[in-house]
Structure formats: structure tokens, C-alpha cells
Amino acid sequence: MLENFSFRTIAEYLPLFGHGFLATLWLSVVSFAGALAVGIVLCAMNLQRSRLSKVPAKIYIDAIRATPLLAQLYFLYFGLPRLGIVLPELVVGILALSLNSGAYIAEIIRAGILSIARGQVEAGIASGMTYMQRMRLVVLPQAFRVTIPPLLGQAIVLVKDSALLSLISVSELTRAGQLLASDRFMPAEGFITTAACYLILYYGLKGLAALSGRWLGSQPMRSRT
């Protein structure tokens, strides 16, 4: 059957894949923005001295990291209606992706902040800065450049994870492949096209990571080794 791989059928379904591609792209962007928000809040909670804010953040992060995204997605998809919250599949999907990636992003930001040499903080203290000033003027600008590469790595993970949304019938890239596979019984055409589209996004993000690496490397202050 592979010898009559049908490019014609793929061409016929191209609008569907185009739609799926855009859907995956924008739902990833929205989810990543959400994940950043979740991550920043979690990280701020985690860095406080008070156990009251630290412990819940830690429990949340560990719970997310120790369970699969698919189970989290089903938890929301089958569970939210139980609480009387009925949302469209797409919204549930974006919520799941944001809550999931947020936990990882919290850890990335935390690692970035903790990677700043102790001497930098001490220099800030020695020159009489307050906690907020040290954070704003000394720590965060340095942490920012350390976190860019792993954040882009997390963005790649998120784009790929968004494929799971097809399992709750969100119409995106993988769903487009499934439709072609089941309508025409052409799984090869369907899933190879899907894979190719994801590769475009993957190499795009990878290129961005390389660019940002070069940009950060060319900055006067070299990032720490």
C-alpha cells in the first residue's frame, strides 16, 4: 500500500492540515503564555521563606511532575463537569497544557535564579540594596539569559504535548492526521504529513534557540559557564 502513497489525497486534505497547523501553533502560544504565568507565580511562592507559600507550590510541582499529562488532561476533561464547570474541549486542553508546563517552567526559572553566583547577591547586599532591588537589578537580569534556552526547550515539549489534545477531539494537527487516516484509510499519508508539520515547528523553535544563543553570547556580559 505504501507503493501507492497518495500525494493527491494529501493535497486534497491540505486545507485541513493548514487549519490544524495554525490551530496547534496558536493554542501552543496561548498555552505557553499561560504556563509562563503559572510558572512565575509558582516560582515566586517557592522562593519565599514562609512554609505556607512554599509547601503548596512544592506539592503542586511534584504532583505534576510525577504524573502523565494525559492523566491530567483526562482529570480535567472528565472531572470539571463534575464540579459544574463545563468548558469547550479546546479550553480544557489549553488549561491542561498551561498547568502542566507551568510546573516545569517554575523549576526552570528557579534554577536560573539559583545559578546566580552568591557573590553577586552579596555585592548587592553590601551596596545596601533591598531584597526587591537585588532581585530587580542584579539577579533577574542575569537569570533571564540563563533561562532562555531551557524555556525554548520547554516550548518544544509543549508543542509536541499538544498532540494529546486530539484525544479529547480538539481539532489540531494530529486530529487532522487522524481524520485523513480514518476517512480514507490512509494512515501513512495522514500521520507522515502530521509528523512533517510538527518537524517544521520543531526546527523553527530550534533555530530560534540557536539564534537566541548567539544573541546572548554576543552580549557584553557573557553568560556564566
Binding site: 500500500m1 505504501l2 518544544i156 509536541k160 504535548d161 499538544s162 498532540a163 494529546l164 486530539s166 484525544l167 494530529t174 492526521g177 487522524q178 487516516a181 494512515p187 501513512a188 500521520f191 507522515i192 502530521t194 509528523a195 510538527y198 518537524l199 520543531y202 526546527y203 530550534k206
Partner: peptide
Amino acid sequence: VDLIRGTPFLVQIFLIFFILPEL
């Protein structure tokens, strides 16, 4: 490695499960 890292695992499973039988 790049091909595998660049595509969702779900799509890889579908490819293996549905296409290998065709071969």
C-alpha cells in the same frame, strides 16, 4: 534522533501501529 525529538510521541505510535502492518 532529531526526527524522534521533533515529533509527538502520539504521532510516532500511530505511525508504527498503523504503518508497519502495511509493510
